[in-house]
């Protein structure tokens, strides 16, 4: 039946390609004409929050946590309103996850606080005795990479027109200014709310540990 094709490797390969590319054309392309639009009032992540998102990626919380509340009563009762597409408009990459070894975190900013996170990330068993989540003590020492986060903000502003202000500019000087005038005060607020002396001291010296950025990010998830 198809013997002729099997003797014609080039046509065979073209045939395979067409057959497999077909689905993408119909499924993927149309959704891009309708690019994800932000819901009203959605602000881009601050640089501190972006740095926190990097910590979330680096320590790979996505291995255990989803960020997608499905439209079931059992989920909205547990986590709050179901997720909307427009809420993810600034998520590059998306962090929905595919496994809930721990609870969903898409709205965790609504019902937890910086000091709770501080206790929990230092030792989850101190607040949830049966927890199997690892402790992330190193986040209290490692310094967050705000420069890379800033570079990311500059990039998405340029390439995708993400609405950042004029304080996001492609230069080291602009970054340093932003760090002092915007990022540090934001971090200080979190550090104070965390009620952890060592962390507070670090931020007061101008250094932002990973945990502060991470909590800024978690607090943003609402």
């Amino acid at each position: 039946m198809f013997h002729w094709l099997e003797k014609n490797p080039f046509l065979f390969a073209v045939g395979v390609f067409i057959v497999i590319a077909f689905a993408g054309l119909i499924e993927i392309l149309p959704s891009f004409t309708n690019a994800a639009r932000p819901i009203k009032g959605l602000k881009p992540y601050t640089v501190l929050q972006l740095a926190g998102k990097e910590v979330y990626k680096k320590d790979n919380c996505i291995a255990c946590h989803s960020q997608l509340i499905r439209p079931f009563k059992s989920e909205t009762d547990r986590y709050g309103k179901y997720s909307l597409s427009g809420e993810y408009a600034y998520d590059r990459p998306f962090l929905w996850g595919s496994k809930r070894t721990g609870p969903d975190l898409h709205r965790v900013g609504n019902y937890r606080t910086p000091d709770w996170h501080a206790n929990h990330m230092w030792n989850p068993k101190s607040v949830v005795p049966a927890s199997i989540m690892p402790a992330y003590k190193h986040q209290f020492k490692n310094i967050a990479d705000l420069e890379t986060a800033y570079a990311e903000a500059v990039t998405v502003k340029k390439v995708f027109h993400t609405p950042y202000g004029n304080d996001i500019q492609p230069s080291k000087a602009a970054f340093e200014k932003y760090y002092k005038t915007t990022a540090l005060p934001e971090a200080l607020k979190i550090a104070k709310a965390m009620k952890n002396k060592d962390v507070l001291a670090m931020v007061q010296q101008g250094k932002i540990p990973e945990i502060v950025a991470l909590i800024a990010y978690l607090e943003r998830l609402k």
Binding site: E27, I28, S31, F32, A35, A36, S85, E87, Y88, A89, Y90, D91, R92, P93, F94, W96, D145, E147, T148, A149, Y150, A151, E152, V154, T155, V156, K158, V159, F160, P170, S171, K172, F175
Partner: peptide, 22 residues
């Protein structure tokens, strides 16, 4: 694109949110 800021190997996805998921 940021004038040489941050980690050289870092990148950001071309797609956002639901599109990225797809």
């Amino acid at each position: 694109l940021s004038g040489g800021l941050g980690a050289w190997y870092h990148s950001v996805s071309m797609y956002a949110g639901t599109n990225d998921a797809l």
